[in-house]
């Protein structure tokens, strides 16, 4: 059982060192919880992040290099997007997606480390 209060608190802890918002969303793009930003902005971001994630999962790598995992699916581990005014990091967290938005000064490694660190939380690993 997911604990919404606890999730929001954990997500809020990620919002340091240039990270502006952290979102936890379902694969279909619906928002589970978020910290930072307004709800309207978070919903738009969740929809776009989910869309880009699944586009990459389906067609993001060249044919012939697919590695099929135990579930019989190809696995996209993470996705980092750099824009003119910020960076976006999307990663799989159990059956959900974890999305971080940071400013353009934030280092790539820090962003990736935060995602890996957040995935280590029990609620993300074992959501049921």
């Amino acid at each position: 059982m997911l604990k919404p209060k606890a999730i929001a608190q954990v997500l809020a802890q990620v919002n340091t060192a240039g990270v502006k918002a952290t979102l936890l969303l379902n694969p279909d793009g619906s928002l589970i919880s978020f910290a930072g930003w307004s709800e309207r902005e978070a919903r738009v971001l969740a929809a776009v992040a989910s869309n880009v994630w699944f586009a990459y999962e389906r067609h993001g790598r060249p044919a012939g290099s697919e590695v099929i995992n135990e579930d019989g699916k190809e696995s996209l581990q993470d996705l980092i997007l750099e824009c003119e005014a910020g960076k976006l990091c999307v990663s799989r967290a159990s059956k959900m997606l974890l999305c971080l938005v940071a400013d353009e000064e934030t280092e790539w490694g820090l962003l990736k480390a935060k995602v890996i660190g957040n995935n280590g939380y029990a609620f993300v690993r074992h959501p049921t």
Binding site: R61, S65, S75, L76, Q77, L79, C83, E84
Partner: peptide
């Protein structure tokens, strides 16, 4: 997303 134009994407697969 309101973050300006995209410059680069890094995708990590298995």
């Amino acid at each position: 997303l309101g973050l300006g134009a995209n410059k680069m994407i890094v995708s990590t697969f298995d």
